[in-house]
Design a protein around this nucleic acid. Structure first.
Length: 689
DNA sequence: TTTAGGG
DNA sequence: CCCTAAA
């Protein structure tokens, strides 16, 4: 009683950091894997985008080559390969889902769409078809890329023959039909382009349907919820955020009194396949080993940084569960999840700066300075350049709701989550010129009337969330071979997995990444440049490599790359976040054990940790185990938060005492509960080792 | 579900 | 902390 009270008090003050304590039962469920995969998918996009951008910069000079259709096939093929990876994943996850979730509804639909799409492109070469089709499946990346690229490209390519801007070195729909164009008429080209786009949107639909009710969807024309969004969007958004709120509430340790209810929620997910266990274990171990090295990380445990992340993630879980439960809109969840991850990953990219801006800091783009590339800068040199100085981005309005009793900290986190959610879900940049949104990405700045002379103040950029990521499922065909089972293949990828899973890498932007990389490499894992995923990183075809040296970024990007695509079957199974026992907890534990003895952890838990949902009786048992050990070693060998001698002494005493006075059921005498509790005073610290 | 232990 | 065999 006493102990409990005391403990409670302590805990309240402690305000346990919010870390998802995802119950194993939930965590363990397989589906997560899928999410991760998608996550990878997303990461691809992002990476591709970033890489593309880089390429572009480097490539601006070489862009002419691209324009000339220099590596059509190359690109296509390359891209196809990449896509296949994605597709593969997609397939896997799809089928996976099929298994247990009755949400496969879209699949057929999507397939159909796909067919249409393909049929529309009959005229094109097969490989082109593939390209296009695949692109479709990942159209989001285009969007993303476009947003990033157009900015620059438009200016650069302005005077190019093709009215469409080449999108960096990365493959894109544009490439597909642009090439076509080259051998066809302008008209034809446009048509193709049109078709392409149409299909893209068509394909999107399925998902849209799925997601719509929940989240704000971007249907190309309706997306901008930012400042310019309409009420409808607002509603959607709001809804979305409500979810967020729910998630938070649902998870989080702040709600100690909550009991395990939330933890009981069972996601509708397929059971993990055999073999995961093993894998997971392995990964866990590795991760664990890496753990100590993540000192910096540890700090986050109690700091906002880490917590935010976890919390964020958790909220996603929650939302996900919620959505699934109520809407079974798996797609959405998945995407969200992906986004979340990709977001985290991407945050490690050099582009960080840009991302940061989203949160409304100031950014400055000097297109002019980057446009002209060394050497063959032909006509570009003459192009007037427009300089943009983006002081800040307009951030989409966020609807946040928290109880009055929420702490400021939690409010911050909530906001953070909201922001992160948007960022993570894929941000799109919107251009608003003279109060109007400029949608046509293919228009040149000139055409849009944006010039240095024009009042720059009339130009604005907005950040638009795009929850539209198309589901990989949209692309059927492709390597259907390695279906689901593939997930059980631990082999090469496992090593990286832990990192990803650990969430640590994602959690904190800096140290972890580096660490991860090291670890990964040490694990002889990937040599960055070899990763299949790297291919994607390389962006467009073969040349890209040559074009893009990018040293620092590589490292970072790499980290990301590995973190995502690699572990196809990554199981999100996260190891519970480490939560060192505080002295107060130790004290409570000691007191409880003194009273109840060892072997009755369940009771100990109920007595002293009733409200600490994150402490299971197993945890307590383990802790006691370590405490006993700690107490028996020299203080110099101890690590972590030092436990007062007094407590350690009591630990030894209690341990010793209960060793003799079996407290266990079958124990000799008395009824368990009545066994006289250890009297600290009487049993001296005699036997201390 | 709990215990008890090994990893 | 995780994982499990047993109970």
């Amino acid at each position: 009683m006493v102990s409990k009270k005391r403990l409670d008090f302590g805990f309240n003050g402690y305000q346990a950091p919010v870390i998802p304590k995802a119950p194993r039962s939930i965590r363990r469920r397989g589906p997560r894997k899928k999410l991760v995969e998608d996550n990878k998918f997303c990461a691809f996009e992002l990476l591709a985008a970033v890489a593309g951008k880089l390429l572009e910069e480097t490539e601006s000079s070489a862009s002419s080559n691209i324009a000339e259709g220099k590596f059509p096939v190359g690109i296509c093929t390359d891209e196809r390969e990449k896509m296949q990876l994605i597709d593969d994943k997609a397939l896997k996850s799809e089928s996976f889902d099929h298994g247990s979730c009755a949400e496969s509804a879209f699949i057929p639909e999507v397939s159909a769409q796909e067919h249409n799409l393909l049929s529309n492109f009959k005229g094109l070469r097969q490989d082109e078809n593939d390209c296009v089709a695949e692109h479709t499946s990942v159209h989001e990346s285009y969007d993303l890329q476009e947003n990033i690229d157009c900015d620059i490209k438009l200016g650069i390519c302005e005077d190019k023959n093709s009215d469409g801007c080449k999108l960096g070195g990365s493959v894109s729909v544009g490439d597909s039909y642009d090439r076509k164009l080259e051998s066809g008429s302008e008209n034809e080209k446009n048509q193709i382009g049109y078709i392409s786009m149409a299909n893209v949107s068509t394909v999107k639909d399925p998902i849209g349907e799925c997601v719509n009710t929940n989240v704000l969807i971007n249907s190309e024309s309706s997306v901008q919820l930012p400042v310019y969004r309409d009420s409808v969007h607002g509603a959607l958004l709001q809804k979305h955020w409500n979810n967020v709120k729910l998630g938070i509430r649902d998870d989080d340790e702040n709600s100690f009194g909550r009991k395990k209810t939330s933890a009981k929620i069972r996601p509708f997910r397929p059971q993990p396949r055999m073999g995961h266990r093993r894998i997971r274990k392995t990964m866990a171990s590795k991760y664990w080993k890496a753990g100590p090295r993540l000192k910096d990380c540890e700090l986050y445990n109690t700091s906002e940084g880490m917590n935010t992340f976890y919390r964020y993630r958790k909220s996603f879980y929650a939302r996900e569960r919620c959505q699934r439960a109520h809407l079974k809109k798996r797609k959405l969840s998945k995407h969200r999840y992906d986004h979340e991850h990709s977001n985290n990953s991407i945050s490690n990219l050099p582009e960080k700066g840009m991302r940061g801006d989203k949160s409304s800091s100031a950014v400055i783009l000097h297109r002019a300075s980057r446009a002209p590339a060394a050497g063959k800068g032909h006509q570009k040199v003459k192009d007037p350049h427009v300089k943009f100085s983006i002081k800040s981005f307009k951030v989409p309005e966020l609807y946040i709701e928290v109880p009055e009793t929420a702490t400021v900290g939690s409010l911050k986190r909530t906001v953070m989550e909201a922001v992160t959610a948007i960022l993570g879900s894929g941000i799109r940049v919107g251009v608003v010129f003279q109060g109007k949104k400029v949608r046509d990405d293919h228009r040149t700045l000139q055409q849009a009337g944006i010039s240095q002379s024009s009042n720059v103040d009339n130009l604005g950029f907005t950040l638009e969330p795009s929850f539209t990521h198309i589901s990989p499922s949209a692309t059927p065909k492709k390597l259907p071979v390695l279906l689901p089972c593939d997930e059980d293949q631990p082999l090469p990828r496992s090593p990286t997995t832990p990192m990803i899973d650990s969430g640590i890498s994602n959690a904190s932007v800096e140290p972890p990444i580096v660490t991860n990389l090291d670890n990964v490499n040490n694990n002889e894992l990937i040599s960055p440049s070899k990763t299949t995923d790297d291919a994607i990183m390389d962006g467009a075809g073969p040349d890209s490599k040559a074009l893009v040296p990018v040293p620092p970024m590589d490292a970072e990007a790499l980290a990301v790359v590995q973190a995502n695509p690699k572990p196809k079957r990554t199981e999100i199974s996260q190891r519970r976040t480490r939560r060192p026992f505080s002295v107060a907890e130790v004290e409570a534990l000691v007191e409880a054990v003194e009273k109840l003895g060892t072997g009755r952890w369940r009771d100990v838990k109920m007595l002293a940790f009733e409200n600490a949902d994150h402490r299971t009786y197993v945890d307590l048992k383990d802790k006691w185990k370590t405490l006993v050990h700690t107490a028996s070693i020299s203080p110099q060998q101890r690590r972590g938060e030092p436990v007062p001698h007094e407590l350690l002494d009591r630990v030894l005493s209690a341990h010793s005492y209960w060793s003799q006075h079996q407290s266990k059921q079958h124990g000799k005498h008395h009824n368990p509960v009545v066994v006289e509790p250890l009297k600290i005073e009487e049993t001296t610290l005699a036997e201390g080792a």
